[in-house]
Design a protein around this nucleic acid. Sequence first.
DNA 1: CAAGAAGTATAGCGATCACTTTACTTTGGC
DNA 2: GCCAAAGTAAAGTGATCGCTATACTTCTTG
Lengths: 209, 209
Amino acid sequence: METRSTSGGQRRGGRGARERILQAAATLFYEEGIHATGVARLVETAGVSTRTFYQHFPTKTALVEEYLRGYEAGLARRIEQKLTREGLTPRDQLLALFTMVAEASSGPAGGPSNRGCPLHNAAVEAAGQMPDIRALVQGNKEGIIRQLTDIAAQAGAADPERLGRQLAVLLEGATAMSTSLDSSRPRQDALDAARLLIELSLPKPQPTP
Amino acid sequence: METRSTSGGQRRGGRGARERILQAAATLFYEEGIHATGVARLVETAGVSTRTFYQHFPTKTALVEEYLRGYEAGLARRIEQKLTREGLTPRDQLLALFTMVAEASSGPAGGPSNRGCPLHNAAVEAAGQMPDIRALVQGNKEGIIRQLTDIAAQAGAADPERLGRQLAVLLEGATAMSTSLDSSRPRQDALDAARLLIELSLPKPQPTP
DNA sequence: CAAGAAGTATAGCGATCACTTTACTTTGGC
DNA sequence: GCCAAAGTAAAGTGATCGCTATACTTCTTG
């Protein structure tokens, strides 16, 4: 048994209040919004006392940040898995990112609704305030653009930066329009459009050189 | 009894408290968010007493709806003006919609910030609740898609519905990514991408038939 | 001028917000 | 079996929420 007497990290004992809080946050913040979700509702859903909540998170904002970092990490992991599956060509890697958001809810876990990207939503809700959250979202989106640009370069795009930024706009539009329309269709439309843009910006794949 | 013996419309007298409230709402809801803007802040900014506020709007939500309808109307008017200017071809009309959001803040008045589309933002903030607002946003976006589809059809697109929906996703992505990145660049990227998609989906314009 | 609509100022309503405090119980390794 | 960490329950903090109530002051106009 791992009585983590060794490495630092979680204390022994406890029955995972922290994880339950983060799980509740992921669900409620995403489904009902951050401002609309009060601490009372969070602790009720997590099955945790208010005291325990504040022993794990100094403020609600701290929980929001950890919720976003958790989503970011999970997303990065899912992308990594998708891309490193048996040798996809760079071109197919680009498309794989679009099929990812097209065929699944873009949210955490298996959320069924069209609630868009948690990071973008947080940026909208943060508005002028909460500079840390704005910075976190901004950094993430810049990372997405960089990733797309890198793959576009590997695919041999004439202007990989341009293609990367264009695809990023399509990706953001897919989830945002899904929210506005409350429909999953825009995510499919984005995939279609991405196919065209990629086709247009990449050199023709030689069938047999 | 109501003495308005003459024509309906604005009442005589009064010094425009209602307009000031709507103006304050447009600024504050857009710049700082709907949930984050309290009634106290609104009446302070509008230079209006709380009493007067509630004589014009039964609830804050009612003001939100009128704010959104007002934005919607202004947007429709701006689009109308852009499109009916001296004979633009349908193809150029499509592009004109993208230059509109590319070269200006997409918000109301001359707002300088990258705060995205007020309607989409409201949908994000409304989350699960506020079904009236969700419906309003949804209706507007469907209208945008219809408008794009109509113009695409006039331009002779092979599949105008498809092009219309793809361009709508690009448009939504432009403003949404502007929010997430806090930059105006995505709106330019969307214009670039739209050019390509339009070029690809429309028959070649015959220089001299 | 009188009337009345439109406005102001301000106090207060109950509810909810994020957060704290006090007092007690469970749990698990030594 | 002891003890400290991790947990629970529940009352209470002040602040702010959306909204109402009371009382008074302009303005415009028939």
